[in-house]
Simulated assay, not measured.
Amino acid sequence: MPARTASLLPPCLLVAALAAVPAAAGCGDSSSAGSDPPALTKAQAQGVLASFTTRADKAGRRLDHGALPGVEADPQLAMDTATFKLRRVVRQWPDTLRFGRPVFYIPRTHGYPRWFAADATTGTGKQTLRHALLFTQAKPGGPWLLTADPYPLDEALGRVMLDDDGFATPVDPGAKGLAVAPGRLPAAHARLLTDGPGAPGTSVLADGPKTKQTFDALRQGEQTLAKQGITLSSRFSAAPHGVYALRTRGGGALVWYVLKQNEAYSVSKRGRLAVSGDLVGLAPAKAVKNRLDSTVLVQYLAVVPPKGRATVTGMYRKAVSAHGS
């Protein structure tokens, strides 16, 4: 699995800083979850993680994105495929993949896809990164695939409530009794990043580096580019991927969801645009003349309380396609 960046600013700036709800997928109904069997045992989850680590590490050492479909599903697959392409162009191979101190959060579910989460770290010292891994199984007997892996800013998964047997409870995307239903988060977050924190429906999200501060940074980036003769438009929408949620202590929910960001850069004078930063490997440099369009996927992890506002606590962002004209 490749190392990543988490900036939401346009890649051509080369600076650090920064709708419809997708269909629910296998999140279960918390009202009946207590009688459902767990998606798999802890030992089986450990086996899934071990197998993924071995195969993903092998693919990473070769930067073989053709091997990723055997271990990942979208959105993770599209994002890591793009990262492999970037790394191959800049000739930067990832370090050996090792997950430390994994803790598994396995929901009691019925139907498919089945899923579970794992809290784990990679790296050491100041290079330590925390992962909120989410694996899914689409059908009986199907492979377990890494589907999402945002980077939490804190020990968010430690808030998950476990029953007497050590298993978690899924929360339905449309569940009531929360500050915001998990399934409404993608559209609300997309509207905030596109139109600002004053837009209708965005008050369910707390201010922070991945909400209001990101919107402010994007607007500042647009102004900076405008002074250079570059026009940028950026719009966010809910990506067509599942929303997954687990019950937390105190009656809240921990939620995984995905946004899509569409960016369009245009200039009247050739030579001002370039395929750079996060877009390297996605489009030929010579293809860009007066316009550059890109599609970005952003995974999020949010904590939703019973009352108040949801806090976004994790993210993984990657451009997955680019087209010059």
Rank of each mutant, 00 (worst) to 15 (best):
L77W: 05
A78M: 00
D80P: 00
D80Q: 15
T81H: 04
T83N: 12
K85V: 01
R87Q: 13
R88I: 03
R88G: 03
W93H: 13
P94F: 03
G100V: 00
G100P: 06
R101D: 14
P102V: 07
V103Q: 13
V103K: 11
F104E: 08
P107D: 09
P107A: 11
T109P: 06
H110F: 06
R114K: 15
A117G: 12
A118K: 10
D119N: 13
A120M: 02
G123R: 13
G125K: 14
K126N: 11
Q127V: 00
Q127F: 08
T128V: 07
A138C: 04
P140T: 06
G141Y: 09
G142E: 07
W144H: 08
L146C: 04
L146W: 07
D149S: 13
P152V: 01
M161G: 11
L162K: 14
L162C: 08
D163F: 09
D163T: 05
T169K: 12
P170D: 09
V171G: 11
D172K: 13
G174I: 00
A175W: 08
K176R: 14
L178W: 10
L178E: 06
P182S: 08
G183A: 02
P186M: 10
A187N: 09
A187P: 01
A188T: 04
A188D: 06
H189K: 14
A190R: 03
G198N: 14
T202W: 09
A206Y: 08
P209D: 08
K212L: 09
T214P: 00
T214R: 15
F215L: 02
